[in-house]
Amino acid sequence: MEFKDTQAIYLQIADYMCEQMLLDKWKPEDRIPSVRELAVQLEVNPNTVMRTCEYLQQYDIIYNKRGIGYFVAAGASRKIKQLKKEQFMANELPQFFRSIYLLDVELDELKTHYEKFKKSHFK
């Protein structure tokens, strides 16, 4: 995994893990790879993965069965979407609105591009 300098690594790992859940690669009640397995796979320190797991537990996206490992929580997809939507609305949307205002982009034009994007990326 290639990490960006713009966001903490543990949050980028959280994004990766959430994506696995949203794509149904990790389903509710599935055991996820261990902290060590993820650390090796992502080429990071196990402590960084542990911090990610603590972060995701805080939002009830995963839970720990002591001695067994971490599992995807029931309703994780809904919780992920809610969290990501809140983060998007607070952090990215204002800049996006600023850009479309400065560039005089109309909402109808955006809708057309969005529909093309959906067709080409999510068939």
Rank of each mutant, 00 (worst) to 15 (best):
D108S: 15
L56V: 08
K123D: 07
E109N: 04
L103C: 10
I61N: 03
R31Y: 08
Q87K: 01
I9F: 06
F71G: 11
L103N: 14
F122D: 01
Q12T: 05
K79D: 01
K85W: 00
E19I: 03
R51F: 02
P28G: 10
K119V: 07
L93H: 01
E29N: 15
K111C: 11
G75W: 03
Q20N: 12
R51E: 14
T6C: 05
F96I: 03
E92H: 06
K65L: 12
S34D: 10
I9K: 13
S77N: 15
F88C: 00
N64T: 06
H113R: 12
P28R: 12
A39L: 07
I100L: 02
E54K: 15
E115S: 07
M17A: 10
Y55I: 00
P94E: 04
L102V: 11
M21R: 13
M17W: 03
K81P: 02
H113K: 11
R51I: 09
A74M: 11
D104M: 08
A14R: 03
D108L: 12
Y16T: 02
D60L: 04
Q7H: 05
K111W: 09
Y16C: 00
E92F: 04
N91H: 03
Q95F: 10
A74F: 01
K123F: 06
E2R: 14
N91L: 12
K79R: 15
F71H: 10
Q82P: 05
I13Y: 05
V72T: 07
A14H: 02
L83R: 01
D15V: 00
Y63Q: 14
G75C: 04
V105K: 02
T48C: 08
D108Y: 11
K116G: 07
K79E: 03
